[in-house]
Design a protein around this nucleic acid. Structure first.
Length: 632
DNA sequence: CCCCCCCC
């Protein structure tokens, strides 16, 4: 039984606008609000509480999502006694003036309790009619006036239902609109109220009246789309202030005007727009909601931006190694040093048959490396200077050969960004040691984080159907080499960089490449090793190419090729014999393909390493730990 | 209210 005394009457006082009070209340009901988003993650889930002050209950109490964890940890539950540390009053219904409490901070004083008193629901008349005459209450009630066009729009204020375009001449206009604001805000008008600027991170769909002062950090092109409701167009932009960031979109009739007005890097006052939960698949910004501009939206250029108070961009970097733990197709922010950059390349899209320009960058940080693919203009404009630090905001994770990064149209690329100390940190690290480090490459199936490649026996590979999926499977096996195909171990490769095609020896000193459609006077030796590996459960043919074959045989393809040319059969046999001397760990990529109507699984060697017997032993112990120890 | 973002 609880001895806590509840703060009687606190709920009504809150609804009247006295939100400074830190009341002790009891939770008498918790409801989950259905999220309309597919992604039912904790980020979008909301809880509505019914609170009691001992005498009355009030059921429209929204819990700030940052407090969801209290419910999920079973600390905040029915009958719990809580202290309300920060609460706001909001109107939820313009027509009948219904209010809600938005709970931003609370502390659970006592998790388990019994019901205190016999509270009754706060009468609706009390909730609606107690205007109380203070500022908060007004804020909640003056929205009851329908949005009207009583107010003449200031010249540099864009109202979407007006035909007034923004003017470049800001100073006087800014003054004018300010005076408009001051004289009109008392009447509850429509013009932006610059004295009440909220920070982005407090925006939510239950806040009825807000103004934000934000910088446009990115702005996408206007795109058209077609869906069940017909054709449409839109553009996206990202808005930042000191507190955070939010993505916004404008559609159809509102699209062109707002797109023309907003300029990347400039600061605007914005009020009136709708807010809806984000879809994490397309939006990685650190905000639970995204904004849709609409007919009522007011946007006004802020000319007196001092350039410092509002950041240009907000980054939320994850380490490259962490990309391995993220789901493919999601969006993230990543920073690293461009260790190398490939030349521009073009590809033909399979779906659209259109040609696209691309450029691959090898991005490295202290713990890992990854291939980042830049597309189109961003690929062309990328400055291939000496190892710049490159920050990607909103880049998409792919899963080709492990994990890759690939820009999308909304990706912001920033070379040597000054907004983050990581730039200097990475430059220093790269100069000191990074440039000579051989880091695990996520785009070559490196083991990082939670993505540890599982160990399998060869019998398990067949039994578990490994390699039969659409995506390749990666596995480790502990095997010895039992056979190597000698004749096909190396082939004559086209000398053209990146071609890789086998050339035809025309036996007159020239070598023909069918792919390049050219004849060369030279070729390069290249490995294409077919080897049989075996463990106690079976055997399997695998392929090993360049680096892996070289590390296995202990010589370059060139050296091997020369032995072959010189018919040093003994040397070659000896090399092969030496490969059978011990067990090795083979990291394999298993992928089915079709060959003459027959499905087979191709095993490609990604890495060959010696057995680390201490870690291997630990792994085996993990596997057998479910076996009861024998008592002596 | 979009959500396509390409190739191996």
């Amino acid at each position: 039984m609880s001895n806590q005394r509840l703060t009687t009457g606190a709920l009504l006082r809150y609804l009247r606008g006295n939100n400074k009070e830190k009341a002790i209340l009891q939770v008498v009901g918790i409801k989950t609000i259905d999220s309309k988003v597919d992604d039912a993650s904790a980020l979008t889930k909301r809880y509505r509480l019914m609170l009691s002050d001992g005498r009355c209950t009030f059921s429209s109490c929204m819990l700030g999502t940052q407090l969801n964890r209290l419910i999920e940890a079973n600390s905040l539950k029915e009958n719990a006694i809580v202290r309300i540390d920060r609460v706001m009053v909001n109107a939820i219904d313009k027509q009948n003036g219904r209010l809600m409490l938005m709970i931003h901070e609370l502390e659970v004083i006592q998790s388990d309790s019994e019901r205190i008193g016999d509270p009754v629901a706060l009468p609706l008349t009390d909730i609606i009619n107690n205007a109380g005459g203070n500022a908060n209450r007004f804020e909640a009630t003056d929205n009851f006036q329908p949005a009207t066009t009583l107010v003449p729009p200031a010249t540099n204020v864009i109202r979407q239902d007006s035909n007034v375009l923004p003017t470049i001449d800001g100073r006087n206009n800014a003054k004018n609109s300010n005076s408009h604001n001051n004289s009109l805000s008392a009447k509850g008008g429509n013009v932006i109220d610059k004295d009440r600027v909220m920070s982005i991170d407090t925006l939510n769909p239950y806040t009825n009246k807000w103004t934000i002062k934000v910088r446009v950090s990115t702005k996408g092109a206007i795109r058209t789309y077609q869906n069940a409701r017909g054709p449409g167009k839109l553009f996206n932009c990202d808005l930042v202030d000191q507190s955070g960031e939010i993505r916004a979109a404008a559609f159809n009739a509102d699209c062109d005007k707002i797109h023309a007005m907003l300029e990347v890097g400039k600061v605007y006052y914005i009020s009136r727009a709708s807010l809806k939960p984000v879809n994490r698949q397309f939006n990685s910004l650190k905000h639970d909601y995204e904004m849709a501009f609409n007919h009522d939206t007011c946007i006004e250029l802020c000319e007196d931006d001092d350039g410092n108070s509002i950041p240009k961009v907000q980054f939320n970097f994850i380490p490259i190694s962490e990309v391995a733990n993220r789901a493919p197709s999601t969006i993230c922010d990543v920073i690293g040093v461009a260790k190398s950059a490939a030349d521009l390349d073009t590809i033909i899209s399979k779906t659209s048959q259109k040609e696209f320009t691309k450029r691959d960058i090898l991005l490295v940080d202290e713990n890992a490396s990854i291939t980042a693919t830049l597309w189109g203009k961003q690929a062309e404009e990328f400055q291939v200077s000496s190892n710049p630090v490159v920050a990607f905001k909103g880049i998409r994770i792919g899963d080709f050969n492990g994990r890759t990064l690939s820009t999308v149209t909304s990706t912001l690329i920033s070379q040597d960004p000054t907004e983050t100390s990581r730039t200097m940190e990475l430059h220093t690290w790269f100069e000191k040691e990074g440039k000579s480090m051989d880091l695990p490459d996520l785009s070559k199936g490196a083991d990082i984080g939670n993505q540890q490649t599982p160990f399998k026996t060869l019998a398990q590979i067949t039994a578990e159907g490994i390699g039969l999926n659409d995506k390749p499977d990666y596995i480790n096996v502990k095997c010895i080499i039992t056979l190597i195909k000698k004749d096909s171990a190396v082939y004559m490769m086209c000398p053209q960089e990146k071609c890789g095609k086998k050339v035809i020896d025309e036996n007159n000193g020239s070598f023909r490449c069918e792919k390049c459609n050219k004849t060369y006077t030279s070729y390069k030796w290249s490995y294409m090793l077919a080897a049989e590996i075996s463990d106690a459960t079976g055997s399997q043919w695998i392929s090993a190419f360049s680096n892996e074959a070289e590390s296995l045989l202990g010589m370059t393809a060139d050296e091997f090729g020369n032995h072959k040319l010189n018919q040093n059969e003994n040397i070659i046999d000896d090399i092969f014999r030496k490969t059978t001397n011990r067990e090795r760990i083979f990291k394999l990529r298993a992928k089915a393909d079709h060959f003459n109507d027959e499905r087979r699984i191709r095993f490609t060697c990604m890495r060959i390493s010696d057995v680390d017997w201490s870690s291997h032993g630990r792994r085996l112990m993990e596997e057998i730990k479910h076996i009861e120890p024998v008592q002596h």
